[in-house]
Design a protein around this nucleic acid. Structure first.
Lengths: 120, 120
DNA sequence: CGGAATCCGATAAGATACTG
DNA sequence: CAGTATCTTATCGGATTCCG
């Protein structure tokens, strides 16, 4: 049988959601939007259906803060702001692909499991 | 330059947080706790420092609902309930390792990026 | 165009106490 | 032991409006 669980098995480990903000609703998608090159604020809003400018701004700020993206503003009228993956953000693309592949492969099973759980 | 983003690039894709509940605070950790074999409720509480029974119960129920874990109750006094990874949950261990490895490798960079962002 | 400011509702999560 | 019940708080995400 298995050893008892180490009480400290997570003490040094990163709480994936809070400190690094990958588990939230938008961060992963934003990274995927940026993986082929820099994008403007308005470009990002298109596939992120339903996101409000406020939430998009908040997400981008947090990612900038964590060194995942860079923000470059070209002054002028109209303003033009470009977001780009920093190297750190780019290194997340691989892991994200892994998760996404799992999701695509197993979502049907999750949904059917949920259904049979519900009917009971 | 990159193509314009496909407005439907996420329409079929699973919102990783909501439907499958991996991005939340505890699910990933619980899976790691169970990857070496079945565990009892009390065992799980040990490394999950700070979790309340309520939250642990909720998390486990959601995971059971989605077919990630199985719950087996052995009646008697004292009661004994064992949680175990279902095959679906076990298939998540690999992807989770990928994410965790990234976290361990890059957390320092994230933290320093945050510091230099703060001092400004 | 690319946000900022403000307000609001839903949900998650924590504290605490109690039970079969 | 393995939860439940109840309450309170914190956070998230959305709507709306306004600005340079």
């Amino acid at each position: 049988m298995a050893e008892p669980l180490d009480p400290d098995m997570f003490t040094g480990c990163a709480p994936v959601t809070a400190p690094i903000r990958i588990g939230d609703k938008w961060t992963a998608k934003i990274i995927r939007c940026l993986q082929d090159g820099p994008r403007r604020f308005s470009e990002l809003k298109v596939p992120l259906t339903g996101i409000t400018p406020k939430v998009l701004t908040e997400s981008l700020r947090a990612m900038e803060r964590d060194g995942l993206v860079t923000r470059t503003a070209h002054p002028g009228i109209p303003p033009k702001v470009v977001y780009e993956l920093a190297p750190l953000g780019h290194s997340l693309v691989g892991p994200l692909d892994t998760m996404c592949a799992w999701s695509r492969a197993n979502l049907p099973q999750v949904l059917s499991a949920r259904e049979s759980y519900e009917s009971r």
